[in-house]
Amino acid sequence: MGLLDKLSCLLGLKKKEVHVLCLGLDNSGKTTIINKLKPSNAQAQDIVPTIGFSIEKFKSSSLSFTVFDMSGQGRYRNLWEHYYKEGQAIIFVIDSSDRLRMVVAKEELDTLLNHPDIKHRRIPILFFANKMDLRDAVTSVKVSQLLCLENIKDKPWHICASDAIKGEGLQEGVDWLQEKTIQSNSGCEDMKR
């Protein structure tokens, strides 16, 4: 980091940048969530299925997030791993109304957690139990049971119920993510010292 960057950081003029991976099955609402988090003048009107990935940016109160919004379609999921290394946090989105594919989501999650680039890092994971507005959606507690989230011991994680179309529950999640990211980063820096 250059002297100027450091200075601006200290003064709080420039926010610290964090890389976040946004993962989850297709049609779970990843792009919609990210779109909603962007400032209202930069939001896209219509959301189409992502092919490959796209890079989006949004800011929270003290951090600047660079999100790798990955495509959830089956044939592109194996491309996620190319971006694991740089990810400093993960947003995992689940369609709570799609009970049938909850197992698929669990499988993808397990693969993710066991990946060598992820396994030994204390990387914060934020789960969005999305599409709460739908009638047959299950609760966030039920989702965490179905995905066996309680087995994740070595990483900070948090699940929030959300409705990306209205934007409900998103801010809560981002606030948690910001707190944990700052913690884990300072932890890292502590270790470096």
């Binding site: 992502t50 092919i51 490959g52 990935f53 796209s54 890079i55 919004d69 495509s71 592109y76 491309l79 190319h82």
Partner: peptide, 9 residues
């Protein structure tokens, strides 16, 4: 194909 969405954007 991974860059498709980035390019469409």
């Amino acid at each position: 194909i991974i860059v498709t969405s980035s390019l469409t954007k």
